[in-house]
């Protein structure tokens, strides 16, 4: 008889913690009156994104995010929603990335991205009642309110150039990761108000249309959640989708149809805000796991 699979057996304690975390996340949203929904994972089209590649599944693709289906429900009159689901992003594999991962996404009606930030604070405090956690040697104080720093200010403080210069030289992501993120500290911290070209589905700030009402939550240096005040203008949304899909094709990526049913129903979408949070990274933080591999039963390489 061969020895038991020790690599798998040693994960048992973390996977038990993971199960409890998922139960608490569900309880948090149910208590606040959000409706849990399930939407299809295999779909004709995602929202086109230049830097996110869907996994093909026959004629269709696997979802890279449940956002379009959830917003169609909101447009049909449904109340505040949440979903826990699997999403797939082709080619993304690293110490903090899996090509198949678990996403928590929720939407608030008659709200903007500031409501989402308050929700994040309340959710983490529910999961960590002591208000402080230690991840990989860094102590993280979760006492609200958490600092909110604009992207422009973060670049002024931590980068070797301004946001506009980084965008002009197509080095925004590189400078964000290499220069800005390592200097943001253990957090928690909300990075807010992204340049408009980097927020294809977000509403622009009424007083400053060069930036969008988009927010990223950083915890322990990990990018944990991304949300925005939703764009509800179908004409503007179509123009942005066309620009993004054109950029994809120019980059040699496989063409996909535009999500027409979403565009057709977008005019009925109420003013709302939605956010996606990476559950695997959340479990990493709450179980002091060094890599994403440690918080899932199987990595793609072990199948």
């Amino acid at each position: 008889m061969s020895e038991r699979n020790w690599q798998l057996a040693r994960k048992q304690q973390r996977l038990e913690q993971r199960a409890r975390i998922l139960q608490q996340v569900r309880a948090f949203f149910v208590e606040r009156g959000l409706l849990e929904v399930e939407t299809p994972q295999r779909i004709p089209a995602n929202a086109p994104e230049l830097h996110i590649d869907a996994t093909e599944a026959g004629e269709a693709v696997l979802q890279t995010s449940p956002e379009l289906a959830m917003k169609r429900l909101l447009a049909a009159g449904y109340p505040d929603l949440f979903q826990l689901c699997r999403v797939w992003r082709s080619g993304e594999r690293g110490g903090r990335h899996l090509p198949e991962f678990t996403m928590l996404e929720w939407y608030r009606r008659d709200a903007d991205y500031t409501t989402l930030m308050n929700d994040c604070e309340a959710l983490l405090l529910r999961l960590v009642p002591a208000g402080c956690l230690v991840w990989q040697g860094s102590s993280i104080d979760l006492t609200p309110p958490w600092p909110r720093l604009s992207v422009a200010e973060a670049f002024r403080r931590h980068a070797s150039c301004t946001v506009d210069e980084a965008l002009a030289t197509e080095r925004f992501d590189e400078i964000l990761i290499v220069e800005v993120e390592p200097r943001l500290g253990p957090g928690p911290l909300f990075l807010t108000d992204y340049p408009a070209p980097l927020a294809a589905l977000a509403r622009l700030k009424p007083d400053n249309p060069s930036t969008a009402e988009r927010v990223e939550l950083y915890l322990g240096g990990l990018e944990l959640a991304n949300g925005f005040s939703e764009l509800t203008d179908p004409v503007e949304q179509r123009a942005r989708f066309v620009a993004e899909e054109t950029a994809r094709r120019t980059a040699g990526k496989p063409p996909r149809p535009l999500p027409e049913p979403y565009l057709a129903e977008l005019a009925n979408l109420p003013s709302c805000a939605g956010i996606a949070l990476g559950i695997d990274r959340l479990v990493m933080l709450l179980t002091d796991a060094p890599t994403i591999d440690a918080v899932v039963a199987f990595t793609p390489e072990q199948l």
Binding site: E49, H51, I52, G91, E92, R93, G94, G95, R96, H97, F172, D173, E174, L176, I177, V178, L198, A199, E216, E223, N226, A276
Partner: peptide, 30 residues
């Protein structure tokens, strides 16, 4: 390590060893 802002461009962080002299250094590729 592969790394990438959720909505951004992929970056590939490598720690490299020169196989002739053993020197170690880091580089990030796009």
């Amino acid at each position: 390590d592969f790394t990438k802002p959720g909505k951004g461009q992929a970056l590939y962080k490598c720690k490299l060893r020169n196989m002739l002299n053993g020197s170690l250094f880091e580089r990030t590729y796009r």
